[in-house]
């Protein structure tokens, strides 16, 4: 088990293995994305209240739910960085932060577009929106800390620590913001009740889109990590050989 673990930490091994996976992952992603998007955008019956607007749900819900997974991911990778000093884990922490910021921003943007039609406003200080916004700020903080620290080893450990602290904090923020919001807006009708699809004709395409976006997330993370590996290992022999090919 430990052999496998230390092997996983080797950037070269990961680079080769992920190179074999990538074509399959991308193919599956495209398959799911095409089926899911066509189904969701053309064939799902219109919502009797929201009409066509409802179709943005098929982008918003998968993106928003995935954006919540970034902090746990970064906290786990950060712990591995701090405890076992595994280079690959630090690369994941580094590339996940901007990716997470993009996912969070996308979730907020798609939510705004949905909101302007259903709630009649681009922004409202709703619990979910506020906690996502604060998560975005925390991710931007991690990114700017990384770019401010010059020594890459110190940056790795500092960002790992901040990811762990941030992960705990995101949970506290989530609960406190929900609490703040429910006290402020009793009997709110916003919530997300409209994303409780009532029949399989609604939730099956949502599931397919969910898988497609999850695959997109995996593919982006792997591509970004591979990029980071090449950059950091540019002096090692195997990268030089790879470039020369």
């Amino acid at each position: 088990m430990w052999l496998w673990f230390s092997k996983l930490g080797s950037p070269k091994w990961f680079y080769e293995l992920s190179g074999k996976w990538l074509p399959w992952l991308i193919a599956t992603m495209i398959l799911f994305l095409v089926i899911g998007a066509t189904w969701a955008l053309l064939y799902v019956p219109q919502d009797y209240q929201q009409g066509l607007t409802n179709r943005i749900m098929y982008v918003h819900v998968p993106v928003a739910s995935l954006s919540l997974s970034f902090f746990p991911l970064m906290a786990v990778a950060g712990t591995i960085t701090l405890v076992w000093k595994m280079k690959l884990a630090d690369m994941v922490v580094k590339v996940a932060a901007p990716l997470g910021a993009w996912f969070t921003a996308l979730a907020l943007a798609s939510g705004s577009i949905w909101g302007v039609d259903t709630w009649g406003t681009w922004w409202i200080w709703d619990g979910r929106l506020t906690s996502l916004l604060l998560q975005l700020f925390l991710l931007l903080g991690i990114i700017s800390l990384r770019s401010a620290l010059e020594d890459s080893d110190a940056a790795a450990r500092a960002c790992a620590l901040l990811s762990i602290v941030g992960c705990i904090n995101v949970v506290v923020i989530k609960y406190s913001v929900d609490w703040w919001n429910t006290l402020h807006q009793p009997g709110t009708t916003f919530g997300m009740s409209s994303d409780q699809p009532n029949g399989p004709e609604f939730w099956i395409p949502l599931l397919i889109m969910g898988i497609a976006v999850a695959l997109f997330f995996t593919v982006s993370l792997i591509l970004a990590t591979r990029n980071e590996i090449l950059e950091r290992e540019r002096r090692s022999q195997w990268v030089q050989e790879l470039v020369q090919e």
């Binding site: 700017s144 609960y175 406190s176």
Partner: peptide
């Protein structure tokens, strides 16, 4: 500025509890 960006979002729960 980095300190502000890192610290301020973390302080939100206390701010909420205090003002509420």
């Amino acid at each position: 500025l980095i300190l502000a960006v890192i610290t301020l979002p973390m302080s939100v729960p206390v701010l909420i509890a205090g003002t509420l």
